[in-house]
Amino acid sequence: MAGMPQPKVDLVPGCPRHVAIIMDGNGRWATQRGRPRLYGHHAGARRVREIVESCPQIGVDYLTIFAFSTENWKRTQVEVAGLMNLFRRYIIKETRALVASGVRVRFIGDRLRLDTKLQEMMGELEAVTAQNSRVHLTIAINYGGRDEVARATKRLAADVAAGKLSPEDVDEETLPRYLDTHVLPDPDLVIRTSGEARISNFLLWQSAYSEYEFIDTLWPDFTRDEFQHLCAAFGGRDRRYGGVKA
């Protein structure tokens, strides 16, 4: 990222402040080329760099990407092991560039199932980028929306049991304070690549009023230009949040 040429892109009028992406299609992209699925995941990781770099040029402050779901453990042992190795390699390879580029990294999801070394690396990356604010990159690993709400509810219930919170005070403003994303604004725009039209248990609570784009492009083919186009299209949407125009 640092030291790489940065093409000039005018800020997009009405650009979403927070974009979340379900990065789907890596495996199919590789299969189309007669390569193993992990080849596609590596190509997808390289695509992340380009999209993160484009955020400040377009006007996106927060980018959240779905890297590994709670359901992805059902994949073959070879693919899961390869993905975990890819996460470790990504952290090692990208840390210096992320720091230099002003990117703040956060991870969401249940870390306890991840190996200890990866957990440590995730924590170290969060720490060394903690003072950055040019782009807020959130990476969802071992994340599921239902799992997140269940874990948040347990923490909320524990505070009620301990007398720190009254049951009468629990409302729809309370639970978000216990979610993994409690320091983030809700996503304005959620993009899913690869032609699938489902949300796959991603940011269920947070995306209640998000705008959605389901596109056919496979994630390794998703470009900076397409990202900018989707952000520009968002600016033309009429967001009423259940109300009507006066």
Rank of each mutant, 00 (worst) to 15 (best):
C55P: 10
P56T: 12
P56L: 07
Q57F: 11
Q57T: 10
Q57P: 14
Q57Y: 13
G59C: 11
G59I: 07
G59E: 07
V60W: 01
V60T: 04
D61Q: 14
D61P: 09
D61K: 11
D61N: 13
D61F: 12
Y62N: 07
Y62D: 08
Y62H: 15
L63Y: 09
L63A: 11
L63G: 14
T64I: 10
T64Y: 03
T64R: 06
T64S: 11
T64N: 12
I65S: 04
I65W: 00
I65M: 15
F66Q: 05
F66T: 06
F66I: 10
A67W: 00
A67E: 02
F68M: 10
F68A: 02
F68L: 09
S69W: 13
T70I: 06
E71D: 11
N72T: 09
W73K: 05
K74S: 15
K74P: 07
K74G: 07
R75Q: 11
R75E: 05
R75M: 14
R75G: 09
T76D: 10
T76P: 12
Q77S: 13
Q77V: 03
V78F: 04
V78N: 02
E79P: 02
E79Y: 07
V80C: 03
V80R: 05
V80Q: 02
V80K: 04
V80E: 00
A81Q: 14
A81H: 08
G82P: 03
G82D: 03
G82I: 03
G82W: 02
G82A: 07
G82E: 04
G82S: 07
L83R: 03
M84S: 01
N85R: 15
N85S: 10
N85E: 13
L86W: 04
L86Q: 06
L86G: 05
L86D: 01
L86E: 03
F87E: 00
F87S: 00
F87T: 00
R88P: 00
R88G: 13
R88Y: 10
R88D: 10
R89E: 08
R89K: 12
R89A: 15
R89D: 13
Y90F: 15
Y90R: 15
I91K: 02
I91T: 05
I91S: 05
I91Y: 03
I92E: 15
I92T: 09
K93L: 15
E94A: 14
T95H: 08
T95Y: 07
T95K: 11
R96Y: 06
R96A: 11
R96E: 12
R96M: 05
R96K: 12
A97V: 02
A97H: 08
A97Y: 07
A97P: 00
L98V: 04
L98C: 08
V99W: 05
V99N: 04
V99I: 10
V99A: 09
V99T: 13
A100W: 09
S101E: 09
S101K: 01
S101L: 02
S101R: 00
S101P: 03
G102M: 01
G102F: 04
G102H: 01
G102N: 03
G102Y: 03
V103A: 02
V103Q: 01
V103W: 00
V103E: 01
R104A: 02
R104V: 01
R104P: 01
R104N: 06
R104E: 01
V105F: 03
